[in-house]
């Protein structure tokens, strides 16, 4: 697996043998704490994404300006994303070679990559200004796409453990 001619297997082998991977492998308690932090940042990402997108879809917080909801949620989203990436790298490195052969891991990495690009290159620049200038249809489509994306990231992630 990998992109074209580039095989990423050596990188995954290295991940598993480096210090980070060894710590995760040897200390079950540390690994479990990583998992727990990962889950809590998952909840935070869920909260900020839901509040943002459901507000754009006019489902929750209808009496609060959507700019306020979106801006505040984005700050916490960034923090949660940082923690979830850090703990995710830690968790994956302990089982890196298994991850390399797991199709759900790659589905997750792909959707995560698309998700990050979507948020920082498209959604954030679009929503930075006044929302009344933006066509409601565009706002709603963006919200649905964002919900779909982050649900996929979380669900494929959960399914990594089962396969």
């Amino acid at each position: 697996m990998g992109w074209g001619a580039v095989d990423l297997l050596p990188f995954f082998e290295w991940m598993e043998t480096n210090l980070l991977g060894q710590i995760g492998k040897s200390y079950g308690g540390v690994y479990a704490v990583g998992q727990s932090l990962h889950l809590m940042s998952l909840a935070m990402i869920g909260g900020t994404v839901l509040v943002t997108d459901l507000r754009l879809l006019n489902v929750v917080l209808r009496d609060v300006p959507s700019e306020v909801v979106v801006d505040n949620a984005h700050k916490w989203f960034k923090l949660a994303l940082t923690i979830i990436l850090a703990t995710g790298i830690f968790m994956a490195s302990a089982v890196a070679i298994r991850m390399y052969h797991n199709p759900f891991f790659w589905a997750k990495m792909f959707s995560l990559f698309v998700g990050i690009v979507f948020v920082f290159a498209i959604k954030r620049p679009l929503l930075r200004g006044k929302h009344s200038d933006i066509s409601p249809l565009v706002l709603r489509t963006v919200a649905v796409a964002s919900l779909m994306l982050w649900f996929t990231v979380a669900a494929t992630g959960r399914w990594i453990g089962f396969s």
């Binding site: 909840a43 909260g47 839901l50 509040v51 949620a73 959960r158």
Partner: peptide, 30 residues
């Protein structure tokens, strides 16, 4: 099991937002 875990995003996510508002860490002007 997946439903149980993924629903964290709804339940705990909303709880986080409410508690952070009480602590003055988000949406302070609302």
């Amino acid at each position: 099991e997946s439903t149980h875990v993924l629903t964290l995003m709804i339940f705990l996510g909303m709880l986080f937002v409410i508690d952070l508002r009480m602590l003055g860490l988000t949406m302070t002007n609302i």
